[in-house]
Amino acid sequence: MFFQQLVNGLVSGCVYALIALGYTMIFGILGIVNFAQGEIYMFGAFGAVTVYAATGSLALAILAGLGAACLVGVLLERFAFRPLRGTHPLVPLISAIGASILLSSLARFFFGPEDRPFPHEFSAATYTVFSAHITGMQLTIMGISAALMTALWLFLTMSRHGKAIQAVAMDSDAARLSGINVNRAYVATFLSGSALSGVAGMLMAVYYNATSPTMGLLPGLKAFSAAILGGVGSIPGAIIGGLVLGVAENLGAAYLSSNFKDAFAFIALVLVLIIRPRGIMGQRK
């Protein structure tokens, strides 16, 4: 029972962590919270489901999902955030909330309010580890998440462009004086954050075999909590925060009350903010 819940928690934790990475990267570089991150996740899922239903090709579906998520991310950057640089923090915050509502209602308009299945058959094999049953799908989710997190880490710390993104996050004027195009760095950040969220959305669409316009709301909020939990702006923090949240939520639902499963994320958040306002990995500015 315990190990089973641990595994289930790690699986949802991986998804939270992927979305939280988007939040934390965008916050790190722009100092704003993209409240519409959950909608990017949702569009990733819808892109994949729609194309899969039309073509039956999994590869095309994945490309479409990535494309939809990235497109939404870039449009958000260009139209909802870029014009607001340097304003009072309330202004981009409200804009992001508006963008989030707009995107989920647009999805309801285009795709209808009902859940859509993702009709792809994946291996039904299960493996038993410490009395916990792990499905092939769960392994896939954890594997893809771990691979993407590693890739992101390598990109940011090893590549020239990744370092440039870090430089913009640390001091954007100095970065410009070093010849770094900051707008390009912002777009690159939105692109990579959106791609991660899009992948998360596709994984969940398959995992639950359901896609709906509101599917991004709770995972988005929880991932944001996870980002705060880990310390906003910190990449390892987002990953740890996501996993901690996923596990805490599943254990809470199993041992305390399943009705309040969705509340545990926020209760954990409030507790962390009281004890350690900068998050687990957060540092003083």
Partner: peptide, 30 residues
Amino acid sequence: LRTGIGHVPEGRRLFKGLTVRDNLILGAYS
């Protein structure tokens, strides 16, 4: 910068979380 004007800003403005070498590499970004 690409036309050939370099600027050492007031207060140095280094990329403080990166290594010395990374700072130099980013100086050549353009």
